[in-house]
Write a protein that binds this DNA or RNA. Structure first.
Length: 540
RNA sequence: GCGCUCGUAGCUCAAUUGGACAGAGUGUCUGACUACGAAUCAGAAGGUUGCAGGUUCAAAUCCUGCCGAGCGUACCA
């Protein structure tokens, strides 16, 4: 076993062998589930397949499990030390450490370039649209929260073999732009802003700078452009870079709307009522029919949005589109999905990830009230890496409460330092090793079987789960799973570091084996933090 | 009212998507630096997973009903 291509993860190997035994029993088309038990006392791996199949085969799960155990033992599989049956029907596998030593070779040879790079996307294209905050004010913390999510998801899918494109939809036209212009002109004239208008320092500042004509739309357009530039800068500061900034104005005036309306018209899904033009979306799954063209001739936002999404699939040809919405936009989901159905686009290819709302302790986030915490300031206060990691610690399904003051005051306790410190320690060890001329020139000469300390084994097991975690996080669109794992890894490493001195001049063989383990830890940590977009430093 | 989402340690969040004893951080308490970086490690305490039923060998997870929270319910965007 010296070539990467020969390597089969232990879990996959077990899966295949279990499937073989099952087919001997006449059970086919079953992919047994093999997992790592939470409690190591239940073995290195376990399967619940006996319990799952018991009903179908009309057999007692424990009989089935014990039968399975015996048949698997008879095969004298490699790596296997012991196979157990545990009531009510778990089958647990205990492996000798050889599988971990081969795993080290695999990771070592893969390096950060190739380790945990599993192709599940097959070069299909996916567009991820996120942030897309209206250019009517600076980004606030809530916007930034999902910026990290979208960006990290893009990194994940990209590593997993998708061709990813990141997009920001710029709502640079319509009523809000007029309201923005109106608000600025009001500030210039020192009068009250309109109802639902924007206020705050940035409005006053823009008003001072504005020297153009007294036209609310012109003023609004002018201001939106400036604000958008600031938004771009803030996102760059957060290490979020978009591939494209797509203009709503372009969609609405560039023919996309006409094409969409024509197509819907041809399908007979459009009708007029009360002087307005409706899409018959209710019968396609929406809660009611939607207005596309108002009775005054203006098109609705919904209409533009449908044209925009049609453009993503039919004009630009993305295989899959992922929209990241805040929970306050969940009402659009049914409309968009039914509209895709109307346009013969498989709605399953339009995924909408809903992020639960972020609330601030002691503050509201509203651009209209002018009372919000700017993302830019937040990044300055807590640091980009801490901000990103913080947001990537929780699932977007979890409504999050953010106490800005608490976050600022506990910056030194932030988990990001825990991860970065682990990396800095690794680099430090490697530098010290180098000073003693201890470096691995050929892993084949390293006696990996010297790694038997419980902390060494525990660390290796954590690393061995990483590829599954990556695939899982990508498939479920949940990058926070990477964070959860990375924290486990760092914990495992710190604990190992404490118990096992790596550099021991009196024991060069063990030193080399441990250096290999350190390198493998470094590789996996590097990949994980790259997926999260968190930077690693050799010194802190 | 209706709809969507959510409810897990004091606080902030995890939990291999139906698995075994619900885990981390933080806070509180107790230990560990004349060994590679103590921004660390080891330990204690903290829970009837909002409540009540149901399905299942197995439920924080699925179903039903309550309770509570957020959001939505425009010819706004």
């Amino acid at each position: 076993m010296n070539r990467i291509s020969d390597y089969i993860p232990a879990k996959e190997y077990l899966k295949a062998e279990i499937a073989n035994v099952l087919s001997d029993l006449g059970v086919i088309e079953v992919i047994p589930k093999v997992e790592v038990p939470a409690d190591p006392n239940y073995g290195d791996f376990s399967t619940n397949v006996a319990m799952v199949l018991a009903r179908r085969l009309k057999k007692n799960p424990s009989d089935l499990a014990q039968d399975l155990v015996q048949k698997l033992l008879d095969k004298k599989l490699r790596f296997i030390k012991e196979i157990n049956f545990v009531s009510p029907g778990f089958v647990n596998f205990y492996l000798n450490y050889q599988w971990l030593y081969e795993f080290i070779e695999y990771v070592y040879e893969s390096g950060p370039e190739n380790f945990a790079k599993v192709n599940i996307g097959n070069n299909s294209s996916v567009q991820i649209e996120f942030v897309s905050a209206n250019p009517t004010g600076p980004l606030h913390v809530g916007n930034g929260w999902w910026a990290a999510y979208g960006d990290s998801l893009a990194r994940l899918l990209s590593r997993c073999g998708y061709l990813v494109s990141k997009e920001y939809y710029v709502n640079d036209t319509g009523g809000q732009i007029r309201t923005l212009g109106e608000s600025i002109l009001a500030s210039k004239k020192k009068i009250e802003p309109p109802e639902n208008g924007y206020r705050g320092e940035y409005i006053d500042k823009l008003a001072q700078e504005y020297s153009g004509v007294d036209d609310i739309y012109e003023t609004g357009k002018w201001a939106a452009e400036i604000i958008l530039k600031d938004i771009k800068d803030t996102l760059l500061k957060m290490h979020v870079e978009f591939d494209s900034w797509y203009s709503q104005d372009h969609i609405e005036r560039g023919g996309a709307v006409e094409d969409t309306l024509n197509e819907l018209e041809q399908k007979g899904l459009i009708y007029k009522k009360d002087g307005a033009t409706f899409l018959a979306s209710e019968k396609l799954g929406d809660s009611r029919d939607r207005v596309l063209i108002k009775s005054n001739g203006d098109i609705t936002y919904t209409c533009g949005d449908i044209a925009y999404h049609r453009d993503k699939f039919k004009v630009r040809g993305f295989d899959r589109v992922i929209d990241v919405f805040g929970a306050d936009h969940h009402g659009q989901v049914a409309s968009l999905k039914s509209a895709m159905t109307a346009l013969d686009i498989d709605e399953a290819n339009l995924e909408i990830q809903i992020g639960q709302m972020i609330s601030l302790v002691g503050a509201k986030m509203s651009k209209r009230s002018g009372n919000f915490v700017k993302l830019d300031d937040f990044l300055d206060d807590v640091g980009v890496d801490a901000a990103r990691l913080m947001s990537l610690m929780n699932s977007i399904d979890q409504a999050t409460v953010l106490d800005i003051d608490l976050v600022k005051s506990t910056t030194m306790d932030n988990p990001v330092y825990y991860l970065q410190y682990a990396y800095a320690r690794i680099c430090s060890i490697q530098q010290n090793a180098l000073k003693e001329s201890l470096n691995i020139d050929d892993l084949a000469n390293v006696e990996l079987s010297l790694l038997t300390d419980p902390k060494e084994i525990a660390l290796l097991k954590i690393i061995s789960e990483f590829e599954d975690i990556v695939v899982d996080a990508a498939n479920m669109r949940r990058p926070h799973k990477i964070t959860t794992w990375a924290r486990q890894l760092a914990s495992g490493f710190h604990s190992f570091y404490h118990d096992c001195k790596v550099i021991d001049l009196k024991n060069p063989d063990l030193t080399m084996a441990r250096l290999a383990l350190v390198e493998v830890t470094k590789i996996s940590l590097t990949v994980a933090l790259d997926l999260l977009g968190v930077t690693l430093l050799e010194h802190m």
